[in-house]
Simulated assay, not measured.
Amino acid sequence: MLSLSADLLFGFDSADISPGGVSAIRQLSSEVRQNFNNPSVNVIGYTDRLGDEDYNLSLSEQRARAVSIALIEGGISQQWITYEGRGENEPVVSCADNMPRPQLISCLAENRRVNIVLKERS
């Protein structure tokens, strides 16, 4: 499993992939094409806990979809890719609520991520 920081890929509260994120996804696409014959690529988006739960689920799905599209544009077959959003579920870190918002946003950064699970199909 590969975990990409959403902060590398997206701005806070955004599903638009940054130029650096596009570059990272293109590199990953190249590696997948070189190392897999018939891959299964599952893209899973996450958010932090800030904001409404339904909104976060939608944002995580939009991010996973954006990464999936970038993988396809990088040469990965659409038939190999599935994506899903899990919102604020499965956090990696937890942070105290009593810190100033900019510090809280920074503290929760690890929870904003996109995981890519790669497997060779038999």
Rank of each mutant, 00 (worst) to 15 (best):
residue 59 L to P: 00
residue 59 L to Q: 02
residue 59 L to A: 02
residue 59 L to E: 00
residue 62 Q to H: 13
residue 63 R to C: 01
residue 64 A to M: 02
residue 65 R to N: 03
residue 65 R to Y: 05
residue 66 A to L: 05
residue 67 V to E: 01
residue 68 S to W: 15
residue 68 S to K: 14
residue 68 S to M: 13
residue 68 S to C: 13
residue 70 A to Y: 09
residue 70 A to W: 10
residue 70 A to Q: 10
residue 71 L to Y: 13
residue 71 L to D: 02
residue 71 L to I: 08
residue 73 E to W: 14
residue 74 G to D: 03
residue 74 G to M: 05
residue 75 G to R: 10
residue 75 G to S: 06
residue 75 G to A: 02
residue 75 G to W: 08
residue 76 I to D: 03
residue 76 I to R: 12
residue 77 S to A: 09
residue 78 Q to S: 08
residue 78 Q to I: 07
residue 79 Q to M: 14
residue 79 Q to T: 09
residue 80 W to F: 13
residue 80 W to H: 12
residue 80 W to Q: 08
residue 80 W to D: 07
residue 82 T to G: 09
residue 82 T to M: 15
residue 82 T to C: 10
residue 87 G to K: 11
residue 87 G to L: 10
residue 88 E to T: 14
residue 88 E to G: 05
residue 89 N to F: 14
residue 89 N to S: 15
residue 89 N to D: 15
residue 90 E to V: 01
residue 90 E to G: 03
residue 90 E to H: 08
residue 91 P to L: 13
residue 91 P to I: 15
residue 93 V to Q: 06
residue 93 V to C: 08
residue 93 V to L: 10
residue 93 V to Y: 13
residue 93 V to R: 06
residue 94 S to D: 12
residue 94 S to E: 13
residue 95 C to L: 04
residue 95 C to A: 05
residue 95 C to K: 05
residue 96 A to Q: 11
residue 98 N to A: 11
residue 98 N to E: 10
residue 100 P to G: 09
residue 100 P to S: 04
residue 100 P to C: 03
residue 101 R to F: 02
residue 101 R to Q: 05
residue 102 P to C: 06
residue 102 P to E: 07
residue 104 L to K: 13
residue 108 L to V: 03
residue 109 A to V: 00
residue 110 E to H: 13
